[in-house]
């Protein structure tokens, strides 16, 4: 099948692969240890999926903010911050 029309690049392929892996591991986690809604640091009760969603959204806006504010072409700083924030939300959110 010719996928040229989708204009794939390595970075975007890696990006989607990570998303798919995250969803797959969330499914496995759900089967092994079903999530329950709980109230943490966030103002509303959340499930594990809610917290992952919030972590991803937060990461997206963090990166956009970084792109807007700086001219840097490397993204280890916002990436590191996003991962740290994501883990914080997943664990304590």
């Amino acid at each position: 099948m010719d996928l040229e029309w989708m204009a794939w690049t390595t970075p975007t392929a890696v990006f989607f692969a990570v998303i798919v892996l995250l969803l797959a591991s969330m499914t496995v986690a759900q089967v092994l240890w079903p999530t329950t809604e709980r109230k943490g640091l966030l103002p509303m009760p959340t499930t594990r999926g809610d917290r992952l969603f919030l972590a991803l959204i937060a990461a997206a806006f963090l990166h956009l903010g970084f792109v807007y504010a700086t001219d840097m072409e490397t993204f280890w700083l916002p990436f590191g911050l996003s991962v740290a924030l994501g883990l914080l939300i997943l664990r304590f959110g």
């Binding site: 040229e4 029309w5 204009a7 792109v67």
Partner: peptide, 23 residues
Amino acid sequence: LMTVVNYSVQDIFGPGQRAFVGV
């Protein structure tokens, strides 16, 4: 949507002609 994500990091000149431009 995936295609849009792919487009967003490239300069699209036409079918098969594109260049990666990052963010």
